[in-house]
């Protein structure tokens, strides 16, 4: 089934979104730093079989409107909250991938009541590895396990956003102290880690889960950082099982 392309305005900016309309409750996906919905679309298609699955491009990235200056993390979170408020979706689940987790957590902590649950896939950035050199090292070690077909999508995303916004995204991700916000997320949250993710260590994924008052960890064996691109069907099954448990 083809995806619906929907453009909506949030905080005065045009935000591009894609939708695969399934029967279950809505899940809205938020992408990582510098990239866009492109890498999440296979997952949106897979999840669309059971849920009303969405992915949106953060302002400044992908097909969304570009504000004159790159938005801060809090502004990105506010934009997502604004988008949700205008969407008519009833307290959806928000799924973040990588840096998208930081946006989702900031939003859930600062806009309580905006979401029913969170899914954090590969939450960055490990508090003990928050230096540019370590993050680049981890990114390189992880990239050998990612699908080679994802590389052209990444390049397209970086070209869409431009170097200034890509760097600003990475900067925002490095400055964010996500660990201080996690205890304030009062909704059920599923943390997903690829078993071979070199950017998100097992101990960090456990710590993230521990800090979330209602967290739960799932490790998907053998997968790298970009779980949604590498195993969209497997992740859709995990998310479906989690949402079934949450709504039960």
């Amino acid at each position: 089934m083809p995806l619906e392309h929907v453009v909506r305005t949030a905080l005065g900016l045009k935000v591009a979104g894609w939708r695969s309309r399934g029967p279950g409750p809505a899940v809205v996906c938020v992408h990582g730093a510098g990239v866009s919905s492109r890498e999440l679309l296979p997952f949106v298609r897979a999840l669309g079989a059971t849920h009303d699955a969405w992915s949106i491009d953060l302002p400044g990235f992908g097909r969304s409107e570009k504000p004159p200056r790159p938005l801060t993390l809090a502004a990105l979170a506010d934009a997502v909250a604004g988008w949700l408020a205008g969407s008519g979706l009833e307290r959806p689940c928000v799924l973040g991938g990588s840096f998208g987790c930081q946006v989702a957590v900031d939003m859930a902590a600062r806009h309580p009541g905006s979401v029913a649950s969170l899914v954090l896939v590969g939450p960055t950035v490990d508090a003990r590895a928050r230096t540019p050199a370590r993050v680049v090292g981890q990114w390189l070690r992880n990239s050998v396990r990612e699908s080679p077909r994802m590389a052209p999508l990444n390049v397209a995303d970086y070209l869409d956003a431009g170097p200034r916004r890509v760097l600003a995204g990475f900067g925002a991700s490095m400055r964010d102290r996500i660990e201080d916000k996690l205890p304030h997320v009062d909704v059920p949250a599923l943390v997903v880690r690829g078993g071979k993710d070199r950017m998100v260590s097992q101990s960090w994924a456990e710590e993230v889960t521990r800090l979330l008052p209602r967290g739960r960890l799932v490790v998907m064996d053998g997968l790298p950082h970009m779980v949604p691109y590498r195993d969209p069907g497997g992740l859709a099954r995990e998310v479906t099982a989690f949402l079934k448990e949450v709504t039960a």
């Binding site: 889960t209 739960r216 960890l217």
Partner: peptide, 13 residues
């Protein structure tokens, strides 16, 4: 486990 249920040292493969 309520939050974290993990194999420790086991290569499940």
């Amino acid at each position: 486990a309520r939050k974290v249920g993990v194999f420790t040292g086991v290569d499940t493969g």
